[in-house]
Design a protein around this nucleic acid. Structure first.
Lengths: 188, 188
DNA sequence: AAATTCCTTTAACAAATGATAAAAAAGAAG
DNA sequence: CTTCTTTTTTATCATTTGTTAAAGGAATTT
């Protein structure tokens, strides 16, 4: 919980009282590697904070498993397109390592927004940061080669290469695993 | 202005009084085709609403002009990565047709947030919708072929093909204009 | 430890896209 | 209308990435 408080403070400082209100609508989850957090087809009604571990959001395209997003500890895990539209998601969330997660009930959080604008502001800023990351990723996918994208990932999150299978990294980068393997071979 | 009110209502209904507060921090801009709205290197301090016309956000990569985003009338034009981080943007905004624009002062808007949470909520929802669009675009760039992306654009915004030069559409889709021309040739 | 399954690499070939150059078409300017 | 500029298409060749198949490694299960 202390970790969550710290995470919040980087975006917007709220009172201890406000924090406790948020605390009251959370539950603690502990998942084993490969367990599913949210299933395809369900509407996102929970916002997760990953205290420890590693998660990914993925979906199926023509039977292929495509990693849409990788989430490291100390980050939120949210199927944004489902939460914001209140629609079923074609995406699922699973953890890739044993993980400790704080689950925040989205509906109760919206209720907190009504009584406490500071909480609404906090989450607005959290999602704004995630929005910016998404925009930067577009630029990378739009006009960087697969090799450049791989190098960018290594530079930004070197630990990811060690913790996530190359299969998932490949689809995250928008290429096949064979192609990624080829790129890695050239690098050495 | 009435148009802006209508646009707002689709996201979150605010009181007439609140709307008038927003109105007070706006200015009207009329730009001729090809005129620049914001320059590369400037920090985004204004949120624009495009009442009439057509705009694009672009940047330069290795001397090439790359269209990051196309904005049709009745939409917001914002360099999100600059506004949310309060950092200079590598991107510029220009209009591709004679355009009528309402400019909203971002700093004054933040001040309105403080005194009126409903206004903050309105803009939160507006940007959430834009966030979702960005996420969907990632999916398209990540695993759809250039041809699929072109077809998706035609289906979603057929008018864009007629109003925007293929040069800009090509870079928006993440391909060269020669490649786009080839795809179009096969289609017929 | 052996067996099984899943992940990663390698190879060969196919398909898609990029780069360059030139021609054709369309638009803008005088 | 004519000229000039920009955009779009076409062609050719190079490069990147995809596809399929097979083999080697690593991890998990029994």
């Amino acid at each position: 919980m202390n970790q969550l408080k710290k995470y919040f403070d980087d975006f917007h400082v709220i009172s201890q009282d406000s924090f406790e209100k948020i605390e009251k609508i959370t539950t603690q989850l502990n998942l084993k590697k490969k367990e599913e957090l949210q299933a395809i087809g369900k509407t996102c009604k929970t916002i997760y904070f990953l205290e420890k571990g590693l998660a990914r959001i993925y979906y199926l395209k023509d039977g292929n498993d495509i990693t849409d997003n990788l989430i490291l500890e100390n980050n939120m895990i949210v199927r944004v397109e489902s939460l914001f539209r209140n629609q079923p998601s074609r995406k699922a969330i699973e953890v890739l390592e044993d993980s400790e997660i704080i689950a925040i009930d989205a509906q109760k959080l919206m209720n907190l927004y009504d009584e406490n604008p500071q909480i609404e502001r906090l989450f607005r800023k959290i999602f704004e940061a995630s929005h910016v990351e998404t925009i930067n990723r577009i630029e990378s996918l739009q006009f960087h080669s697969a090799e450049e994208r791989y190098k960018e990932l290594i530079e930004k999150h070197p630990e990811v290469i060690k913790r996530v299978s190359l299969k998932h990294i490949a689809s995250y980068l928008g290429i096949t695993q064979v192609s990624l393997s080829r790129i890695r071979a050239i690098q050495n």
